[in-house]
Design a protein around this nucleic acid. Structure first.
Length: 877
RNA sequence: GGACGGCUAGCUCAGUUGGUUAGAGCGUCACAUUGACAUUGUGAAGGUCAGAGGUUCGACUCCUCUGCCGUCCACCA
């Protein structure tokens, strides 16, 4: 679709806001976002943004990188498939809606509305969020296939969840059990270990005995739980308490008779407090572990509302809140003379990630995924286990990464991953919230059935839902049709997906669980690579948050600077796994670059006229140089993107575009004519190389120029290894020097034109005659280039000249002499260091040959330079 | 308590198997500018690569220790 626009009439500044939406629409309509052809599959499943509102900079980073990868691989002829989607985010969304409803005046929305009505509200909100998110993802230029969009809570994903639950239940790795779990009293639900965070608080550490007759004092910051103590534990080697171990006491603690066994356990630190620990199996996972080792009973004393249970505590304590109970116990102990000491200590209080309420540990009947239990594998797995052999989920998760079937970038996160897995406990997957996948389990008195639909009227479904990560764990293969046999077979070759690109903050939450689910269910890893990007922070390195008011919103920035600039600012100057500091200034810099590229293109189009078929032939040295550089850069950029070095790739491209092409070659092209084919070729290649980074401006120029088809599906440049014509770089030095000469010392360009024309043979002589002081370093006399120089710009004809010119004027002899002397000193030092090295026998013996050669070359250069400098100094005197 | 990361120019950061005068962008300063681009060009100044040891012919790069900043995990009841 040649647009036949006169390049001269194109606006001088690129205005992203007027073109991006149309370009996106055209791409989408053309079907370019769908996998095409028969190439190698390349699949990325988008980490689904939570349907809790809008996207932030983290999402923008994710989209920029994934789109870069997808476009890059699509242009290389692969069947690039990028599956978009959103996450219902269970608790997060429910909490959000609940808070909204409270803001609107409801006191207790769930009670007032009931399950069905409340869920309607949540679904409505989630739908609205999805619409917003889709638009934002589009705004970022994401080339994902919208017909392929998935939702973690849609009908198909629900089937996958149910199927997975059923399989795991049958294999005995999903189990219902009465165990100590994290309980959020505010939202009345269990939480996984990952949803619990810690907050540093000052707390009172009480040291006391249960009653007068009890022989051992214990310390605690949670006296209210002590009604549930069933043991006191000491370290096995602790001599102070050895005589008590094994005995059972029945002290009366604050009005309740306890039964306390004295046990010895390695987990006790004899140095802390009194060296004795009151064991509360119901309200501490550590104590619960200890209790199971010693066969101790569990007595729950705190209920789901974080109040003391009347029947299990001393008289007058029932129904008290934790705070109230704590105070009352302290005063009771004090008046009974049992309190030994009260100490203020710093400790970490577990709080809920959402809502921030203090998390209680309570024993409850919940569903768990057992990570340490061996089960018979359903298929050959990870090339290590055969079908029917036994393994644990932990073993699968470890082997996936250890065997490098999944590679984490950057690799230092391997360690973190292994550490996390090794300390992983069984995963509590049931949640007492309403929004999510309902647990597919039905009860009839003592009978339990796992199935999707009701087995009969007398059966009742488990009221709970599943942890949101249970469904997102299936994301790579549930989006590809699993468990539907036919659909899965059709999409099979997209799995394992190519790469999972996400923030390092959810390595555990999500990445590990995807590996768990995928290796378990289908025996292969979910993705070949994991690329972890850093978190986006403000310019001072702080987290972006509403309270700090330092949030940069992609939706504000895009209209202002253009999507391409925003994308570049998130990709450039970043390293995987390291946080990114972002400022508007940085984005502005890339907006400037977008404009530079626009003007480069505009200028090239003016030179070219109509775009030419891409068969460039170098006629001059400059042509050879720029084409060689272009080939070199193409190869290098390709390699770097393949190695996930996006920033380095972008920087190299920018340096080439700005530093080599715009500042040099295009200037030369103003003088040397007949470069249409080469310019056309360079523009075409350049647009392709930039396209994954800045899709909009490149596509816009592509169309404007009249290149065939759409850039989004154009073929990635061929990459070949080339040798650079280095003499051009030396000529660059020459020209730079001449320009400086002219600028600083007012020497007329006419003289330069004269000598330039006089080159090849007598260059040295002429220069010396026409300019006061000239030093010419010539390594080869075979010089034949430069036909004219205008206004300081050299035009170069041909040949493989290797000439270095160091030109100096003579306006201020004194100053020039000082400068030369200084330079001589520095060069002397340099030569000395090189000499030392070259005479060093050990260096000669041990250094590799290429290093030695390089040193010798440098030595030669340095000596020549030295000679030139001393010559110059001589003249200056 | 355990682990990980950062410390390189005024600022933001590169520096991929150790190779010898350490790079970029922004900022600063000087100069240029009828030119595709003032969203420009040329150049300059600016670094004991956090500190101390060690390995090596050679260390920003590898090892040990220390300091400061940050993150994660586990938590002592």
């Amino acid at each position: 679709m040649r647009q036949n626009i006169d390049p001269e009439s194109l606006p001088k500044a690129y205005d992203a806001s007027t073109v991006e939406d149309d370009i996106y629409k055209a791409w989408e309509a053309s079907g370019a976002f769908k996998p095409q052809g028969k190439g190698e599959p390349y699949c990325i499943v988008m980490p689904p943004p939570n349907r809790t509102g809008t996207l932030h900079m983290g999402h923008a980073t994710m989209l920029a990188i994934e789109d870069l990868l997808i476009r890059f691989h699509r242009m290389q002829g692969k069947r690039a498939r990028w599956i978009p989607g959103t996450d219902h985010a269970a608790i997060a969304t429910q909490v959000k809606v609940e808070q909204l409803l409270i803001k609107q005046g409801m006191k207790n929305p769930r009670e007032e509305l009931g399950r069905e009505k409340f869920l309607e509200k949540v679904v409505e909100f989630a739908e609205e969020s999805a619409v917003t998110i889709r638009n934002q993802v589009r705004k970022m230029g994401s080339s994902c296939d919208w017909d392929d969009e998935k939702y973690t809570l849609d009908e198909h994903r629900n089937r996958a969840v149910n199927e997975m639950f059923k399989m795991m239940y049958e294999d005995g790795i999903i189990e219902r059990g009465y165990r100590v779990v994290n309980w959020d009293p505010q939202f009345q639900t269990t939480l996984s270990d990952d949803e619990v965070q810690s907050k540093e608080v000052t707390s009172k550490l009480l040291t006391f005995t249960y009653d007068k007759d009890f022989p051992i004092a214990i310390s605690t910051t949670r006296p209210e739980t002590k009604f549930g103590d069933t043991a006191v534990a000491v370290h096995p080697t602790d001599k102070r308490y050895k005589k008590f171990v094994g005995k059972t006491y029945e002290p009366v603690f604050c009005g309740k008779k306890l039964s306390i066994k004295i046990i010895a356990d390695e987990a006790v630190d004899p140095e802390f407090g009194t060296g004795a620990l009151g064991v509360t199996p119901a309200h501490s996972t550590i104590d619960a572990d200890m209790a199971s080792r010693h066969g101790l009973p569990t007595i729950q004393v705190i209920d789901e509302h974080a109040r003391l249970i009347e029947s299990e505590v001393g008289e007058g304590f029932g129904g008290l809140t934790i705070e109230e109970a704590r105070k009352k116990i302290q005063s009771t102990l004090e008046s009974d003379g049992l309190l030994k000491s009260v100490e203020e200590i710093q400790m970490n209080l577990p709080v809920a990630e959402r809502g921030g309420a203090a998390v209680e540990q309570l024993p409850m009947k919940q569903w768990f995924v057992r990570v340490n239990k061996p089960f018979a594998l359903r298929q050959d797995t990870l090339g290590k286990w055969k079908k029917g052999e036994k393994a644990t989920l932990k073993e699968l998760m470890i082997h996936a990464v250890e065997s490098k079937q999944t590679t984490i970038v950057p690799d230092r996160f391997d360690k973190t991953y292994f550490h996390w897995i090794n300390n992983l406990r069984d995963w509590c997957i049931s949640r007492q919230i309403w929004f999510g996948h309902r647990i597919p389990v039905w009860y009839k008195e003592d009978e339990v059935m796992v199935m999707e639909k009701s087995p009969g009227t007398e059966w009742e479904q488990d009221p709970d839902t599943l942890d949101t990560w249970f469904s997102s764990g299936l994301w790579t293969f549930s989006t590809l049709g699993w468990p539907d046999a036919k659909e899965w077979r059709e999409n099979r070759d997209y799995h394992p997906t190519a790469v999972l690109e996400t923030g390092y903050d959810i390595l555990f939450f999500w990445v590990a669980r995807m590996i768990l689910m995928s290796t378990y269910a289908i025996g292969e890893v979910p993705f070949k690579d994991v690329y972890l990007h850093g978190l986006v922070r403000d310019e001072q390195g702080r987290k972006m948050s509403k309270s700090l008011g330092n949030i940069l919103d992609p939706l504000d920035l895009i209209p202002k600077y253009g999507t391409d600039a925003v994308r570049l600012s998130l990709v450039m100057g970043t390293t995987p796994g390291l946080d990114v500091k972002l400022s508007e200034e940085k984005i502005q810099g890339f907006r400037n670059f977008t404009n530079k590229l626009w003007n480069i293109s505009r200028f090239m189009l003016m030179q070219i006229g109509d775009v030419k078929p891409s068969k460039p032939k170098a006629k001059t040295l400059a042509d050879e140089w720029i084409l060689a550089r272009l080939a070199e850069v193409s190869l290098s950029v390709t390699k770097k993107i393949d190695a996930y070095q996006f920033s380095a790739a972008g920087e190299e491209l920018r340096d080439f575009t700005w530093g080599d092409l715009a500042d040099w070659y295009l200037e030369i092209a103003k003088i040397e004519k007949g470069k249409e084919a080469i310019l056309s070729h360079i523009l075409e290649t350049l647009l392709k190389l930039w396209h994954p980074f800045m899709p909009f401006v490149t596509e816009y120029v592509w169309k404007t120029a009249g290149f065939e088809g759409d850039l989004i599906v154009a073929k990635w440049p061929k990459t070949i290894d080339v040798e650079i014509v280095s003499s051009f770089d030396i000529i660059r030095t020459l020209v730079t020097d001449m320009r400086r000469l002219r600028a600083e010392q007012g020497i007329e360009p006419v003289k330069m034109v004269e000598f330039a024309i006089a080159i090849p043979k007598d260059v040295k002589k002429l220069l010396e005659e026409n300019i006061d002081i000239v030093k010419v370093l010539t390594r080869s006399e075979n010089v034949s280039f430069v036909d004219s120089i205008e206004n300081g710009w050299a035009s170069v004809v041909s040949g493989n000249a290797t000439i270095g010119l160091n030109v100096a004027g003579s306006v201020d002899v004194e100053k020039e002499r000082e400068k030369t002397e200084k330079e001589i000193e520095e060069t002397k030092k340099y030569i000395a260091s090189l000499t030392g090295k070259l005479k060093n026998k050990e260096f000669l013996a041990k250094a590799p040959a290429n290093v030695r050669e390089e040193m010798e070359t440098k030595f030669g250069e340095a000596e020549a330079k030295m000679k030139a400098l001393t010559d110059r100094l001589e003249k200056l005197k």
